[in-house]
C-alpha cells in the first residue's frame, strides 16, 4: 500500500483527512511512524479501527507541532511598531490557527501586556490535536531544552525598548526543569480543538488579527485555497493576517490583501 492509499483509507475510518497535505513532508512522517511502530500501513489501519488512543497518537505524529516563543524576534519587533499600534480601539479578537502548544499565543499576550491591552482583547487558539491544546492550557514547558526562548524574549524586549524580564512572565523551576506562564496571561486565551481541513469555522464571530504562521506550508494548493477562503470570510475589512516568514498568499487572494512584507491587511 502506498502512502496516498493509506491516507484515503485513514480518512474513511477516522474522519481525519490528510489527503491534501504536501507530499514530501507527510510521506516522510508516515515512514517515521512505520519505522517507530514497526508496523505496515495495513497494520496501522487495522489497529486504528479498534484502538482510538492509538489512532490519536498517529494523528499527533502526522501533524507538525513545532512552535517557539517569539519565533523570528525581528518580526515581532516590527509587528509591535506597526500592527499593534494600529489595532482598533474597541475589543480586539485574535485567532491563532494551528497554535500547537500555545507559545505563539503567549508571545502575542506578552506583546499585549506590554501595551496594557490585555483587558480589551479576546484570544483564541485552535489546533487539530487535543493533546497539544492541553499543554497550551497549562502553559508549562521544558526549561533547559528551550533556553533559546529566553534569548528570543530578550531580543524582542530590547527591540521594543522594554525593561521587562523573562521572569515577569514565566515562573522558572530549575529543579523540575520547567517554565510556566504566569497569570493573568495564563487562563486568558481560549483553546479550541478544530480540524481546519473540514473548511468550517470554529466560532461565529469575526476576527481582527489572524496568526497563521507556518501552517499552510503543509497543505497543497487546492487545500490552501479552500482554507484561506474560510479564513478570509472570518476577517473584517482591514483585519490583519500574519503568515510565516517564507509563506505567501495563494495567487487567487493576492489582490484582496495589501502586503508590507511583515503582514497582510484585508483590502476593503
Amino acid at each position: 500500500m502506498d502512502f496516498k492509499t493509506f491516507l484515503q483509507e485513514f480518512k474513511k475510518i477516522t474522519d481525519y483527512d490528510f489527503c491534501d497535505y504536501s507530499e514530501n513532508s507527510i510521506s516522510r512522517r508516515l515512514q517515521k511512524i512505520c519505522d517507530e511502530t514497526k508496523m505496515t500501513f495495513e497494520e496501522i489501519l487495522r489497529r486504528c479501527v479498534t484502538d482510538r488512543p492509538f489512532m490519536g497518537r498517529v494523528v499527533e505524529d502526522i501533524t507538525v507541532n513545532t512552535t517557539e516563543l517569539f519565533r523570528d524576534p525581528q518580526v515581532w519587533v516590527s509587528l509591535f511598531n506597526t500592527l499593534y499600534k494600529s489595532l482598533p480601539k474597541t475589543t480586539v479578537t485574535f485567532w491563532h490557527i494551528g497554535c500547537s502548544v500555545g507559545l505563539e499565543v503567549y508571545s502575542n499576550l506578552i506583546m499585549l501586556s506590554e501595551l496594557n491591552m490585555l483587558d480589551k482583547c479576546r484570544i483564541i487558539g485552535t489546533d487539530i490535536n487535543p493533546r497539544v491544546l492541553s499543554v497550551a492550557k497549562k502553559g508549562e514547558y521544558a526549561y533547559s531544552f528551550n533556553k533559546y526562548f529566553e534569548d528570543n524574549f530578550n531580543a524582542v524586549m530590547r527591540g521594543i525598548g522594554s525593561k521587562s524580564k523573562f521572569s515577569d512572565y514565566f515562573d522558572i523551576d530549575e529543579k523540575k526543569d520547567q517554565i510556566k506562564i504566569k497569570p493573568p496571561l495564563l487562563g486568558k486565551p481560549r483553546f479550541i480543538c478544530h480540524n481546519l481541513v473540514m473548511g468550517q469555522s470554529p466560532f461565529a464571530y469575526r476576527v481582527d488579527v489572524v496568526f497563521f504562521r507556518n501552517v499552510m506550508i503543509y497543505f497543497n494548493d487546492a487545500l490552501q485555497r479552500k482554507i484561506m477562503a474560510m479564513v478570509y470570510s472570518k476577517m473584517y475589512d482591514n483585519s490583519f493576517l500574519i503568515l510565516g516568514k517564507r509563506e505567501d498568499l495563494p495567487k487567487s487572494l493576492k489582490s484582496k490583501f495589501i502586503s508590507n512584507n511583515i503582514f497582510f491587511q484585508k483590502a476593503n
Partner: peptide, 21 residues
C-alpha cells in the same frame, strides 16, 4: 534554505518548507 526551515524539493519542481523537528 531559509533559516529555521527545512527545505524540500517536490515532484512538480517546486520547493516546499517545513518547521518540523
Amino acid at each position: 534554505a531559509p533559516s529555521n526551515y527545512h527545505m524540500f524539493i517536490e515532484f512538480d519542481g517546486t520547493i516546499s518548507l517545513s518547521i518540523e523537528d
